[in-house]
């Protein structure tokens, strides 16, 4: 078990990214319309090797379309997608990419072992079956028919297909949307083991907590565009939507002056503080001896989007930090 925490094998030289090597993912000015709907609208994104990135957005934000173009399944109207410096199709053909589409991909009348062994066999240097099964939390299910699996088990098989070939980049489109809490936890355990080996991971989600907990970097996408890009902390600071609830008696105006508080709302003896830095706020409350019935509620994505869109409309707002190593490049096409 400890082997997984401290990278079990020396990672391949190009998996973690030697300086100068092309990034795992480079999207420049990607645009795609379906009829009158512009699903992806000038999206540029660069993901260095070894990073775990969450593509966060509500349903219909253009996440799946962006991922489809990234994987070479959808041809962009304009712009360019590159994986490890080459066309997506080439990278897939070379076995450097593993992917889990949002749904489907499982067939009937085969066993879990047969299906995984077949997909692994299409790669040049796949993981052994036992490791794939263990990595995806499928131990003991190799002999089970794929059409007899529970929803959570089926999802783990789909994850197993994505990691079977031991690719350098793994792309997962809403990997946990069909899972219950326990299955979700097991899924992320498997994912963390994979990431620990220096692999690049991109996953899309509409759960803020999931992006928060499992990604090094969050790219927020809305209406086909990137509206924020940074670490979880940076995004939350911008959206300022963490709410700290506390019971207070008497004077309440001092609360507005606490560090990290951007707005307050008083109802009876209950104060709700909207915070850009809830940690600082809680520490200050504790120092003031005012911690009573403390409640910290994380930002709600729905509200976060309202906030992010509003930020975009009003210019004098600090734009979220970009963590990509290189600046935006002009599209060559």
């Amino acid at each position: 078990m400890n082997a997984n925490a401290v990278s079990p094998a020396p990672p391949a030289a190009d998996a973690t990214g030697s300086p100068g090597a092309p990034p795992a993912v480079a999207l420049s000015e990607l645009t795609k319309s379906f009829g009158a709907v512009r699903a992806v609208d000038g999206l540029s994104l660069e993901i260095p090797r070894g990073q775990t990135v969450a593509l966060l957005g509500p349903n219909g934000a253009g996440k799946s379309t962006a991922i489809g173009m990234m994987l070479g399944l959808i041809a962009p109207d304009s712009g360019r997608a590159e994986i490890f410096g080459g066309r997506p199709g080439q990278a897939v053909r070379a076995g450097r990419v593993g992917a889990m589409p949002q749904e489907g991909g499982l067939i009937h009348r085969v066993t879990v072992g047969e299906l995984i062994r077949f997909v692994a066999g299409t790669y040049q240097d796949p993981l052994p079956l036992e490791r794939i099964l263990a990595g995806a939390g499928l131990g003991g299910l190799a002999g089970r028919r794929v059409d007899k699996l529970s929803g959570g088990q089926a999802q783990r098989v789909r994850f197993a297909l994505a990691l079977a070939g031991d690719p350098d980049l793994i792309v997962l489109d809403e990997p946990t949307s069909a899972l219950d809490v326990e299955a979700r936890r097991e899924f992320w355990d498997g994912m963390r083991r994979f990431a620990a080996r220096g692999k690049t991971i991109l996953f899309s989600t509409h759960y803020l907590e999931e992006a928060d907990e499992h990604a090094d970097r969050i790219v927020v996408i809305d209406r086909g565009r990137i509206v924020a890009d940074g670490t979880s902390r940076e995004i939350k600071r911008v959206t300022a939507l963490t709410t700290v609830g506390v019971t207070v008696t008497g004077e309440t105006s001092w609360l507005a002056g606490l560090p990290g508080v951007s707005a307050i709302e008083i109802r009876g003896d209950r104060a709700r503080l909207r915070c850009t830095d809830s940690d600082a706020t809680v520490v200050a409350l504790a120092q003031a001896g005012a911690v009573r019935d403390l409640e910290v509620s994380p930002a709600d994505l729905e509200d976060a989007f309202v906030a992010l869109t509003a930020h975009r409309a009003t210019p004098p707002v600090p734009s979220p930090v970009r963590t990509g190593p290189a600046g935006q490049e002009e599209s060559a096409v």
Binding site: G95, G98, G104, L106, V119, T122
Partner: peptide
């Protein structure tokens, strides 16, 4: 049926030509 199940798309995501 394979097409409806997303199996053809899954195959396109493997190195299989």
């Amino acid at each position: 049926e394979d097409k409806a199940l997303g199996w053809l798309r899954q195959l396109r995501l493997t190195p299989l030509a």
